[in-house]
Amino acid sequence: MDLPLRRTLHQLRNTRDLRAEILSLAASLLATRAEGELVVTDPIISPATVRREWQQLLPALAAEVRGRMSLVVEPPTLRLGEKRVDYEIGASLQQLQKPNYRFEILRQLLRADLEDAGPQPVKALLDAIGASQTPIRAALAELDEAGIVRRRGRYVSVRAEEISAELLAKLQAAPQTLRYRFERGAQIKPPAVLLRRALALLGSSAPAGWQDLALSGVAVARADVPELDLLGLPRLDLLVQLPRAAQTFDPALLRRLDDGLEPEPSLLAPAPVVLTVARADTTLLRDAPVDGARSARSVDVYLSLLELGLAAQALQYLEAVRA
């Protein structure tokens, strides 16, 4: 059996060096079957920051490698009366739910319906979502039993008109949403101001972490269908496509939009920014139509209108997009 690989970082001062060491350890494990351990001793940055960076980077590594990696953080032993100040980078990570394959299947079938792609073979769903057959076929069987999915041999389809926010909730097929509010004392910005800032972050020179985000909701719906019966911008909707293995999301990304934003834990409280999480391997984004900003496809815009409670406008959008 190969001997374990052990790396040590002493008095770590920044997350850049930490990420570099994690990737170096992972690369070393590719050529061996050994276990790998990263030991961080007496870090200057806080242990919470170290663990958060570890959790955030690990899903990007091959499953076979990350399964053999472990982290040990050894803060210093303080003498009586001695104090130590660690500084923490970023905010606490938000936990992500496991991928909801009922939603991911409906999302792919709704995309096919809105884009006139016709019924889809089950294999196409497997390839687009990227998960193994067992969870996908189990979720598809549940949707089939509920009478939502139409079958024609090996092909399946749905009709967008038959999908509602209430039905998604009943079937437990709604996506996870991450909601953000202005923290106490922050200057509250209207959604239109947040939209202008988002457009700058969603262009070709997107900052780190924003490449997987896209504009969605009313802003894109109105650009797609100018005659849509909508007044104002009720909130800023964004879509984020994350790997299925991802377990956390860093809300510090939203600080680039406005440094006064923080997570809103209540699903019932109003939120000026709402992030819808998608977990399929196939990216459903486009570079139009709002000022060149990366935007969600029509299926995600349609779903965001339903989630907003704009059922009539969602149907109007659906008819216009199909036409």
Score class of each variant (00 low, 15 high):
residue 258 D to N: 12
residue 211 Q to F: 11
residue 251 P to R: 10
residue 34 A to C: 07
residue 203 G to F: 12
residue 287 D to V: 01
residue 262 E to P: 02
residue 51 R to W: 03
residue 239 L to F: 01
residue 123 K to Q: 13
residue 272 P to M: 03
residue 171 L to R: 03
residue 175 P to G: 15
residue 183 E to K: 14
residue 85 V to W: 07
residue 113 D to Y: 12
residue 59 P to R: 04
residue 114 L to K: 01
residue 123 K to I: 11
residue 74 E to V: 14
residue 76 P to T: 03
residue 193 V to Y: 06
residue 292 G to A: 09
residue 27 A to P: 00
residue 46 S to G: 13
residue 157 S to W: 07
residue 255 R to P: 00
residue 268 L to D: 14
residue 153 G to Y: 03
residue 323 A to L: 12
residue 50 V to W: 10
residue 320 A to G: 02
residue 120 Q to D: 05
residue 84 R to T: 03
residue 68 R to V: 12
residue 209 G to A: 07
residue 12 L to T: 00
residue 165 A to R: 11
residue 147 G to P: 07
residue 73 V to S: 11
residue 96 L to R: 08
residue 279 R to A: 09
residue 264 E to D: 04
residue 136 I to K: 01
residue 248 T to E: 14
residue 320 A to E: 08
residue 222 R to Q: 14
residue 288 A to V: 13
residue 174 A to P: 01
residue 241 Q to H: 13
residue 205 S to K: 07
residue 165 A to E: 08
residue 199 L to N: 06
residue 133 Q to S: 15
residue 147 G to I: 04
residue 138 A to L: 13
residue 249 F to Y: 15
residue 51 R to D: 09
residue 162 E to H: 11
residue 141 A to K: 14
residue 160 A to N: 03
residue 70 S to A: 12
residue 240 V to K: 05
residue 191 P to I: 03
residue 315 L to P: 00
residue 123 K to Y: 10
residue 255 R to D: 05
residue 59 P to F: 08
residue 276 T to Q: 11
residue 72 V to W: 00
residue 295 S to L: 04
residue 106 L to H: 08
residue 12 L to D: 02
residue 3 L to K: 05
residue 63 A to K: 12
residue 78 L to A: 09
residue 186 A to Q: 06
residue 181 R to Q: 11
residue 303 L to M: 15
residue 102 R to L: 09
residue 81 G to L: 10
residue 166 E to Y: 01
residue 166 E to A: 15
residue 278 A to N: 12
residue 139 A to M: 06
residue 254 L to M: 15
residue 317 Y to I: 12
residue 64 E to F: 02
residue 233 L to E: 09
residue 323 A to K: 15
residue 45 I to F: 11
residue 233 L to C: 11
residue 214 A to D: 05
residue 235 R to Q: 13
residue 304 S to E: 15
residue 66 R to M: 04
residue 256 R to H: 10
residue 146 A to M: 03
residue 319 E to P: 00
residue 2 D to M: 06
residue 18 L to S: 05
residue 81 G to W: 13
residue 283 T to D: 11
residue 18 L to D: 08
residue 264 E to V: 09
residue 316 Q to C: 06
residue 74 E to I: 13
residue 17 D to F: 00
residue 219 A to I: 04
residue 176 Q to I: 00
residue 201 L to V: 02
residue 56 Q to P: 00
residue 84 R to M: 10
residue 12 L to M: 07
residue 106 L to V: 00
residue 229 D to P: 01
residue 280 A to P: 14
residue 276 T to A: 10
residue 316 Q to F: 06
residue 223 A to Q: 05
residue 49 T to H: 07
